[in-house]
Design a protein around this nucleic acid. Structure first.
Length: 420
RNA sequence: GUGGGCGUAGUGUAGCGGUUAACACGCCAGGUUGUGGCCCUGGAGAUCGUGGGUUCAAAUCCCAUCGUCCACCCCA
């Protein structure tokens, strides 16, 4: 009669079997971020909704149809975080981080919510590792941030990924380019998909990354934005490329890469895995020199990226990347006689206190059952407490892999089984 | 938002008009005297996603609905 509860559509439980992969990715990301001089930040899971509508852009799909918005009991419009950059910029402003040494380098790992139709590698709740460098306009930070994302993939053991790079200009050169692009499209609108006709009006830059078959030939000969940057943007882009070359990071110039958040300026980039699927992108980001001002701050440049942990894990599994050894359970304490219940519990407790992982078996179960259990849990040792051991203050310590067994004083178990 | 595939024990599957709904793995217990892995035996566990319909008879056919997966779209 009672209904079966399930995780809501598009969400998933990350079960113990998957945790080693998650730990691996999280630990590697955190280590790398610190190595690059980034400090961790955590922002709330929800924010005032206008932060995103204004920051990310009213006409983006994320804002128009993918945000989880709700009112709290006080009537405030809130939104579950649909992306990571705007909240960090809000925190930068709110806490006066402009008075810290610039740029302020921050990283985070956080859940992201988007009301999307779920499919492979796409969820309504997913997790992003992201990085933001705020307060520095020079192309070296762009290269640094890109290097961090690139290194993450490499450190994790992913192979065959490609870095796509483009520049989409700034306030000075983009308007003129968009006019040129419109001019180019104007007489071709009849030969282009329906979405693109809408894009022509609303968001012409997006014409360039339409995937429809009909639009491909039109895009192929469209004027690339990289050829129409103003001097400063062109200079910035050229600098970035030389920094990347210097760091030995291979990149592919992709004139069709524009990305879907309105706040991007100049640099945009994306890392695609070896095996490309529908939505494969492992991570992407770009420069957002106008965002902080948009949010009410003084003009402040910034750059960052977000990378999807679920997708990274999917690719690690697909590529059969090796995982660092998981730490096995060290000791399973076998309760052989009812009289040993308390001493067995005590032994397990003492072991844990000494930093040795241990679980106590149940006196309800037979010796045989407990031994099986110890084996099934992958314990390294079984510590058996029976009448004899109880009388002597010892345990029978059996190494399960090779079957050897010895009698050890209770007080010495920890050091006997401990690492070394 | 649009299109397609699939929903049978915890997991993976078989059955495709009439069966006590099967098998494997997993789980629990036992295989006499204090010891796991292999093996053997037994047990628990499924109103066959849900609701309608067709039929003497439905897990099997039809419809709807929900869920899920995949593609478009969008993005991480």
């Amino acid at each position: 009669m009672t209904r079966q509860y399930k995780a809501p559509r598009g969400t998933q439980d990350i079960l113990p079997a998957d945790q080693p992969w998650w730990d691996y990715v999280r630990d590697t990301a955190a280590r790398l971020a610190r190595e690059f001089g980034y400090a961790q930040i955590e922002t709330p899971v929800f924010e005032e909704a206008p932060l995103f509508t204004r920051g990310v852009g009213e006409v983006t799909d994320i804002v128009q149809k993918e945000m989880y918005v709700f009112q709290d009991r006080g009537g405030t419009d809130l939104a579950l975080r649909p992306e990571g950059t705007a909240p960090v910029c809000r925190a930068y402003l709110e806490h006066g981080m402009h008075s810290l040494p610039q740029p302020v380098r921050l990283w985070y790992i956080t859940p992201i919510f988007r009301y999307d139709r779920p499919q492979a590698g796409r969820y309504r709740q997913h997790h992003q590792f992201g990085v933001e460098a705020i307060g520095e306009a020079g192309a070296a930070v762009d290269a640094e941030v890109i290097e961090l994302l690139w290194r993450l993939c490499g450190e994790l053991g992913l192979t065959g990924q490609t870095l796509h790079l483009n520049s989409i200009g700034d306030q000075n050169c983009r308007p003129a380019y968009l006019e040129m692009l419109r001019g180019y499209y104007r007489d071709k609108l009849s030969g282009v998909c329906e979405d693109c006709r809408a894009r022509f009006e609303r968001n012409p830059l997006r014409l360039l990354d339409c995937k429809q078959e009909i639009c491909r030939p039109v895009i192929a000969v469209a004027p690339p934005i990289a050829d129409h940057l103003c001097d400063e943007c062109a200079r910035h882009f050229a600098d970035l490329c030389s920094y990347l070359d210097a760091a030995g990071i291979p990149f592919a110039l992709n004139p069709r890469l524009v990305r879907g958040l309105d706040y991007y300026t100049r640099t945009v980039f994306e890392v695609q895995p070896r095996e490309e699927g529908g939505q494969s992108s492992l991570g992407g980001g770009g420069r957002y020199d106008g965002l902080i001002e948009q949010l009410g701050g003084k003009p402040t440049p910034g750059i960052g990226f977000g990378s999807g942990i679920e997708r990274i894990v999917i690719n690690l599994k697909r590529q059969e990347a090796p995982l660092p050894d998981a730490r096995p359970l060290q000791v399973y304490v076998v309760v052989q006689t009812p009289a040993a219940r308390v001493p067995a519990f005590r032994l397990a407790s003492d072991l844990r206190r000494a930093g040795v992982s241990a679980v106590a078996g149940s006196s309800e179960r037979s010796l045989k059952a407990q031994m099986r259990h110890a084996d099934a849990l992958g314990a390294v040792y079984a510590a058996i407490l029976g009448e004899r051991e109880l009388a002597e203050g010892t345990v029978a310590l059996k190494h399960l892999a090779d079957g050897t067994q010895e009698t050890v004083a209770l007080a010495e178990v920890a050091e006997r089984v401990g690492p070394a």
